[in-house]
């Protein structure tokens, strides 16, 4: 074990003991935190799996319809129909606020877009385009939810990792080290006590002999 540099005093022993108690409490708490984080993480994994499937399905059907619309309409016609000006309004489509999960700051998205996806004329466009855009528009809220969950998962995973590292550090290094320190101090104190007692006995003998 590494070189131990501690003052061999009772004061120090008390200090080390206090530190050990603190480390052990911290260890217990961190372990609980880690377990809870894992629990939350698994929940998110579960949720995201279902959501991802739904989103992928919706997008796939949207792309299929879009493909057909693309086939039905001339390239020029399709481009014209989809010239919507992007988002020329003030502010953004998405409101973001932060939420705390186990002290982890995760973003929450809220879609603030009530606009029609069908911003084109009906007389000269393919009806298939409606279906494609309906599928895309329908998938958008879930897609954003999915982004939210996946970001939260990413942040949680990071937090779990650091917590795990801390638990390990406490468990593997700090606590054994403190324990060793304490043991060392005890032994050193015992040693000192024994030697001082021996000295005392010896002094007593000498005094007795002299007397």
């Amino acid at each position: 074990m590494a070189e131990v540099r501690v003052n061999v005093t009772r004061m120090e022993l008390l200090r080390q003991k206090k530190r050990l108690a603190m480390a052990q409490r911290g260890h217990r708490l961190l372990k609980q935190k880690r377990d809870e984080l894992m629990h939350r993480f698994m929940e998110l994994v579960e949720e995201s799996r279902g959501l991802r499937e739904r989103v992928e399905e919706a997008l796939a059907s949207g792309f299929r319809s879009f493909l057909l619309a693309r086939a039905e309409m001339a390239k020029e016609g399709l481009y014209e129909a989809l010239m919507t000006g992007g988002d020329s309004r003030e502010g953004s489509l998405l409101a973001v606020r932060m939420d705390s999960v186990m002290n982890v700051q995760v973003p929450r998205f809220a879609l603030q877009d009530s606009r029609e996806p069908y911003a084109y004329g009906f007389a000269t466009t393919s009806a298939e385009l409606d279906r494609a855009l309906a599928a895309f528009a329908g998938a958008l809220p879930e897609l954003i939810k999915l982004a939210e969950i996946e970001k939260a998962m990413e942040l949680l995973a990071e937090e779990i990792e650091t917590t795990r590292r801390r638990v390990n550090a406490l468990e593997q290094i700090l606590i054994p080290q403190l324990e060793q320190n304490i043991r060392f101090i005890y032994m050193a104190l015992d040693e000192m006590e024994r030697s001082s007692r021996a000295q005392l006995l010896r002094i007593k003998d000498i005094i007795r002999g002299v007397a």
Partner: peptide
């Protein structure tokens, strides 16, 4: 008339008309 729509949208919505012109 199609091209008219394209240029109206291009101008007012600030879109690129190139791909949509007949």
């Amino acid at each position: 008339f199609h091209n008219l729509k394209v240029f109206l949208k291009a101008h007012f919505l600030e879109e690129d008309p190139r791909e949509a012109v007949f």
